[in-house]
Simulated assay, not measured.
Amino acid sequence: MTTPPISIENLPRQNASQVKNKWGDVVRQVRQNGSVAITNHSAVEMVLLDAATYQQLTESLAALQAREQSVLDELSQRFDARLASLHQPDAGARLGALFDAKGKLGSKRPKVGASH
């Protein structure tokens, strides 16, 4: 199970001068905590991550992007199917009959579901 991400405000901090002058200490802190916020004039400018954390983030991002693309592909297919029904030769007649009915169902029961 993965640990939840730590907010940037709660990360251990090192200022840019400490990173430059005490690189070994910063590396040890990153290995111990997984990440360190690098500050410049007390403002966080970047976050230093260990390789495992970076790999986990990139894999999670790739999985999310793949899932998003899958959902978009499904929606696109559904849209294309509905659009194709408007290109059928009898689409105009069906639409005309719908307007002529003026909201009355007649003897037919309404159709429901994902396919209608």
Score class of each variant (00 low, 15 high):
54 Y>K: 07
17 S>W: 02
82 R>S: 02
18 Q>C: 06
116 H>A: 12
97 A>P: 02
54 Y>M: 06
65 Q>H: 08
71 V>G: 00
32 Q>P: 12
73 D>A: 00
16 A>K: 01
62 A>N: 13
63 A>D: 13
98 L>C: 06
12 P>L: 08
69 Q>L: 11
4 P>E: 13
11 L>W: 15
77 Q>F: 00
99 F>P: 03
107 S>H: 05
22 K>L: 08
49 L>G: 01
8 I>P: 14
7 S>D: 10
36 V>M: 09
44 V>F: 03
86 L>D: 07
33 N>P: 04
100 D>F: 05
84 A>S: 08
108 K>E: 10
58 T>W: 04
14 Q>M: 15
21 N>M: 15
19 V>K: 02
87 H>Y: 02
24 G>A: 11
38 I>K: 00
59 E>S: 06
33 N>S: 15
54 Y>Q: 02
23 W>H: 15
51 A>R: 11
10 N>I: 03
36 V>W: 03
89 P>C: 04
62 A>T: 11
13 R>S: 01
88 Q>I: 04
79 F>Q: 01
86 L>R: 04
39 T>Q: 02
70 S>V: 08
40 N>R: 01
100 D>R: 15
60 S>M: 06
82 R>D: 04
55 Q>G: 06
65 Q>A: 06
3 T>I: 00
98 L>K: 15
101 A>M: 07
52 A>D: 04
44 V>S: 03
20 K>C: 10
84 A>F: 11
35 S>C: 10
41 H>K: 07
43 A>D: 03
9 E>V: 07
34 G>R: 04
116 H>M: 02
96 G>Y: 14
92 G>P: 01
